[in-house]
């Protein structure tokens, strides 16, 4: 029995921990086990899931994309300017994603062609993108001028917001892309051993550039979804979004070193953190103590997952 359970626990450690947390909250927390609460969680996590699913691919490919935060902030500023000027939410959505795609391609080229470390490269592009946000918005809050823009993320289908449905679709695409396509196999190969992948005929630069481009586009879409949710966008230098994305990816068990990971792990990681925060709020835990406990729990979860993956079967 144990010989069967332990390998499964090793492989699915983060999922087990997340399910355990779900069970604990269900047993101890008033208001947790309700449709409204689950809909809220899906709604709250929609933007992060969109960005994190493709950030996973970038990380597996051996890259580190800090610029997701700046794209998340700035893409909706471009989108809202277009929406205000044309009245078209659809065009605004396309523009927001395109902004992210352009930034992602730029990141990819800097990393592959100029051989700049991805952390440094995307940090540098972050500053440029943040600055562009202040310029495009004239340092002002931008708000939607039509009802169609808020409808992008706030329409409800079977009680669940379209933002959450979009996130589900994006996660599915990322999952299939990584686990069922040649591109996905190349991503793992490049992240595991770029030189070996190159010798095996994989176009390493192309794979990395595409990974960064897709991550950028996803971050742009996440920004548009978030701004649709909040009916506005605000220029800032705020990096906190990418910390949330990286936390979900790393807590899920994807290796920062590259070559290992999966989209499902990121989803599990994201929901582990989301459930924890939801539990804190439902129990009215002091926000100051939330920070301390959250950090400790994340550390414990990552340690357990790391330990289960290291132990031999």
């Amino acid at each position: 029995m144990m010989a069967q359970v332990l390998p499964a626990a090793r492989r699915y450690g983060i999922a087990v921990v997340t399910v355990a947390l779900f069970g604990l909250l269900a047993a101890t927390t008033d208001g947790f086990l309700s449709q409204a609460n689950f809909r809220n969680i899906l709604d709250q996590q929609s933007a992060l899931l969109i960005a994190a699913s493709f950030a996973t691919i970038t990380m597996i490919a051996g890259g580190f994309d800090i610029s997701a935060a700046s794209v998340f902030v700035v893409a909706p500023l471009f989108a809202l300017q277009v929406e205000n000027a044309t009245g078209s939410a659809g065009l605004a959505l396309v523009v927001g994603v395109a902004v992210g795609l352009v930034v992602g391609v730029a990141n990819g080229l800097v990393v592959t062609a100029l051989k700049v470390n991805s952390f440094i490269a995307t940090l540098a592009t972050s500053f440029m993108v943040f600055g562009a946000g202040f310029l495009i918005s004239d340092r002002s809050v931008l708000r939607a001028s039509t009802d169609a823009y808020p409808a992008i993320a706030r329409t409800r289908w079977w009680g669940i917001t379209t933002g959450a449905w979009i996130a589900a679709g994006v996660v599915a695409v990322a999952w299939i892309l990584l686990s069922r396509t040649r591109f996905g196999r190349h991503v793992y190969a490049v992240g595991g051993n770029a030189e070996a992948a190159r010798l095996a005929g994989v176009h390493v630069a192309r794979v990395k550039t595409v990974a960064f481009a897709l991550a950028g586009a996803a971050a742009g879409l996440a920004g548009v979804v978030s701004s649709s949710r909040t009916l506005s966008a605000l220029p800032s230098d705020d990096f906190s979004f990418v910390f949330g994305v990286i936390a979900a990816v790393v807590v899920g068990g994807t290796s920062i070193a590259g070559g290992e990971g999966a989209v499902w792990r990121t989803i599990a990681g994201a929901f582990f953190i989301a459930l924890m925060i939801n539990g804190f709020n439902l129990h009215q835990v002091d926000p100051i103590w939330q920070r301390v406990i959250q950090g400790a729990v994340i550390l414990a979860a990552v340690s357990i997952d790391s330990w289960t993956q290291r132990r031999p079967t």
């Binding site: 947790f32 409204a36 809220n40 939801n278 709020n281 439902l282």
Partner: peptide
Amino acid sequence: GPEGGINATQDILQV
């Protein structure tokens, strides 16, 4: 921005 208020209010309405 409003996102923090959205998330906080959604959770508070459950309790």
